[in-house]
Nucleic acid binder design. Sequence first.
RNA 1: GGUUCCGUAGCUCAGUUGGAUAGAGCAACAGCCUUCUAAGCUGUGGGUCCCGCGUUCGAGUCGCGGCGGAAUCACCA
Length: 595
Amino acid sequence: MEIVLKEKIREAVKVLYNSNLTDDLIQIQETRKDFKGDFTLVVFPLLRFSKNTPEKTGEMIGKYLIDDFPMVSGFNVIKGFLNLSLSDEWWVQYFGTMASEKSHLDNCQVSNPETILVEYSSPNTNKPLHLGHIRNNLLGYSLYRILSACGHRVIKTNIVNDRGIHICKSMLAWQKYGKGETPESSGMKGDHLVGKYYVLFEKKYRLQADELMAEGVEAAEAKKSAPLMTETRDMLLKWEAGDKEVVDLWKMMNSWVYTGFDETYRKLGVDFDKIYYESDTYKVGKDIVLSALKENILYKNGDNSIWADLTSEGLDQKLLLRSDGTAVYMTQDLGTAVDRYKEYRFDKNIYVVGNEQNYHFQVLKAVLKKMGYGWAEGLIHFSYGMVELPEGKMKSREGTIVDADDLIGEMQETAKEVSLELGKLSDFSDSEKEDIFRKIGMGALKYYILKVDPRKNMTFNPAESIDFNGNTGPFIQYTYARIKSVFRKAEEMGIYANQDLLSKVTPGPKEIEIIKLLRRFSETVTVAATGYSPALIANYCYELSREYNQFYHDFSILGEADLATRNFRLMLSKVTSEVIFTGMWLLGIEMPERM
RNA sequence: GGUUCCGUAGCUCAGUUGGAUAGAGCAACAGCCUUCUAAGCUGUGGGUCCCGCGUUCGAGUCGCGGCGGAAUCACCA
């Protein structure tokens, strides 16, 4: 629409001032609510052509437009702003085309679709998922939805950190103190069970270290030589050597964890197309490093450790292989990246990883480029901020980690309590009710997390997150459910949304307000996709819901009006609900038909 | 100390590529349920957009310099 208006303005300036305008000089924006009009042309950039005052220039262009184009029904000039009003007929017609669109995502399609890998979640197999992982998973999954909605080919990947000394800790603790406990025998979720032994290890280990220190051993030495720690190191060596007993234990405990993770992922509504395991990829990394060494891209230190010199990139020296030849974190990521490129030939590889690893990804990209991989340009670290609690950071030491499963359970429980108190679902079966409670609880959680700018650290306030009023997921779900309800009632009354009757209607300001908002949808999705920010869509859904709720209260949709008007309002409700649904779908939030 | 990110109402957060008098929600107070769902709507109060300088017709937004906070700078992952 702006395109049409832009052309008209370009034409006006051509005729009036005999000048050809470039696109960036024609600045059109929605008129602020405090002024009369629909769209505003900023005339300041045009003054050099008109050689006149802002007011006079605005007047001239306004007059030209109103005389020559019926879609412009009026104008006013305030300072350097030309406010244009579009005719009601035009708005209705515009809305008509919007209503007949099959998918509201059609306008977001990119002209050059890319192959994009999105890596998210990245759990460790020694602990259950926590609140931080939830933010990660929700962001990653939503990114996948948004990018694919825009026409990209997106592959969801997860890399599981399943090896290393920390894994051995829980294994050892289980071996020593577990008495053969399994998820079945204990009734615990597998990841929680393994997490329990990791915590137990840390506890026992600290006791041993404290004892040694009491005997006069220095702190650093005590930590190193505590019997549990030496046993753990032995176990890691055995694992790397492929010792059958250790590997079998490792496999068994990991399988418990995966079963647990799968359940959490299912509850969160996320999934993956391809899962990588670090136990597979670290070897690939080693090979790459060694061959780069041969080509003199890397160098060897006196102690045989291998390094990359990144000083010319403004970074530091980076270790890639230890002196004993074993891999470090960076080595694995190099291997994974090369592996992935071989398999997918991606244009972009997006890593959804917390901002504490900004430096790591800067280095990863630099090393790959140094090795001559041009595609490394397509590595993108989607860096998001920490989730903190009102009391400060989550700390395992202080037991303030918010467990993902617990949190999900609490959200759904609260949704249940509130719903039952409001008593709106009395005629529903128990399973239908449970389904709605789940959708509302998860909607609250997901929306609460996704509505904030990913880059920023955020505060997770448990009390506030389960609030269902105001800028929340349930509010948007409620708006949607209410529209659905209107339609059920309309059907009873024999009224149907009928596009043919649109031409006979004069929309009020509130209706036009909603149409304007609807118009912004695809624009918002596109910006969200290029800026990797689901938060834009979340806030958009809220704004639209708020606008609709006001509309709902100000007007009777099904009564007190002529047929054409009722149809128009019904149509407006229909498109609004579709757009809200699509927006929330892009965030991975399910919408209940009733609540 | 170096690098990166953040700083908007008491609190949690929005704020499109620089545009007009900076917006929501929560919390507080006052109203509105016999109508299609009150998980809602309406109203009141609440601001040095961290500070300063610069760029320009115009800066919460861009640049530089401060101040404050966070992360990171491992032969941990």
